[in-house]
C-alpha cells in the first residue's frame, strides 16, 4: 500500500526533521498494519471500500501521527537539527580522515607485500598501476565521493542546499589542493609516500578544474535527487485516490 498518503507522510516527516531510517521503518510498519486491518475487516465481510475507510480511521489522522513523532527528540535527525555542523563542517574532517586512512592502507599493504611476498616494486608494472590508482583515488575520486555523499545525505534529510553547498565547496577546495605521491623502494633506497597541501601560482588550472568538477558533480546529485523527488510527488498528486489518512 505504498500510495499517495504514505508518500506524502514520508515527505512531511522528512521535511520536519525526522530521521530517514526511522521514517522508513514507521512507514513500513504502517503499511503492514494497514494491510492487517484490511484483511481483518474483509474477513468479517466488510466491503473493500468501507474496509479502507475504517482502516484509515483506525490508523488515526496524519496530523496526530506527525505530532507524535515530532514530540520525540530521539526520533529526530541530529543532522537536520544542526545542518551547519553536519554538512558544513563535518565533511572536511571526514575527508581528511579518509585521506589519511588510504595512505595508511597503502603503506601497510606495501610493507606486507615487501616483507612476506618479497615484491620487487621498482620493476613491477602492477605496483606502478597501484600507485597511479592511489593518486587518482586520493586526488580526484575521494573528494568527489565525499562531496557526493554529503549532497545525498543532505537531500535524504531534506536539508536546504546552503550548508551542504558550503561543505561540498570546502571539500572541493581542500581536495584540489592536496598532493600525494608514491616512491617505491629500490635495492638501494627505501620507499616513501609523500602527501601535502598547497598550490603553485603557475599551476592553478588543475586545482581549479578539480574543485569545479567536484562541486559541480555533487550539486548535480543534490538537485537531481531533489528534481526526481518533486516529479514523483507531482505524479502522485495527479493520481486520484478515494481516501486519505486525514480525517
Amino acid at each position: 500500500m505504498r500510495n499517495l498518503q504514505l508518500s506524502a507522510l514520508t515527505e512531511r516527516l522528512l521535511r520536519a526533521g525526522a530521521s530517514p531510517r526511522g521514517v522508513r521503518r514507521v512507514i513500513g510498519e504502517l503499511e503492514d498494519h494497514f494491510a492487517d486491518i484490511l484483511r481483518e475487516l474483509e474477513s468479517q465481510g466488510v466491503p473493500p471500500m468501507e474496509a479502507r475507510k475504517q482502516a484509515c480511521a483506525r490508523l488515526g489522522s496524519e496530523d496526530v501521527l506527525v505530532a507524535s513523532i515530532l514530540a520525540k527528540p530521539e526520533l529526530m535527525s541530529w543532522a537536520h537539527r544542526r545542518p551547519a555542523i553536519a554538512f558544513g563542517l563535518l565533511p572536511l574532517p571526514a575527508f581528511t580522515a579518509s585521506f589519511v586512512c588510504s595512505i595508511i592502507v597503502l603503506a601497510v599493504t606495501s610493507y606486507c607485500a615487501q616483507t612476506w611476498l618479497h615484491a620487487v616494486f621498482v620493476r613491477s608494472a602492477g605496483w606502478h598501476w597501484v600507485s597511479r590508482c592511489f593518486s587518482l583515488w586520493n586526488l580526484w575520486l575521494l573528494p568527489m565521493v565525499m562531496a557526493i555523499f554529503c549532497a545525498y545525505a543532505a537531500w535524504r534529510r531534506r536539508v536546504p542546499v546552503l550548508w551542504p553547498a558550503v561543505g561540498i565547496l570546502i571539500v572541493g577546495v581542500i581536495g584540489s589542493l592536496t598532493n600525494v605521491g608514491v616512491r617505491w623502494p629500490t635495492a638501494t633506497s627505501r620507499g616513501a609516500i609523500d602527501a601535502g597541501i598547497g598550490f603553485g601560482t603557475a599551476h592553478l588550472v588543475r586545482p581549479l578544474l578539480r574543485t569545479a568538477s567536484t562541486v559541480a558533480i555533487a550539486l548535480l546529485v543534490y538537485f537531481g535527487c531533489w528534481l526526481s523527488g518533486r516529479r514523483k510527488a507531482e505524479t502522485l498528486a495527479n493520481e486520484t485516490l478515494p481516501l486519505t489518512m486525514q480525517q
Binding site: L59, K72, L75
Partner: peptide
C-alpha cells in the same frame, strides 16, 4: 482507543530508550 498509527513512534521511542 489509541490511534493505532501512533503506536509505532511510541514503540520506536521505547526501543531507543
Amino acid at each position: 482507543s489509541l490511534g493505532e498509527g501512533v503506536l509505532y513512534p511510541a514503540l520506536h521511542s521505547l526501543e531507543l530508550s
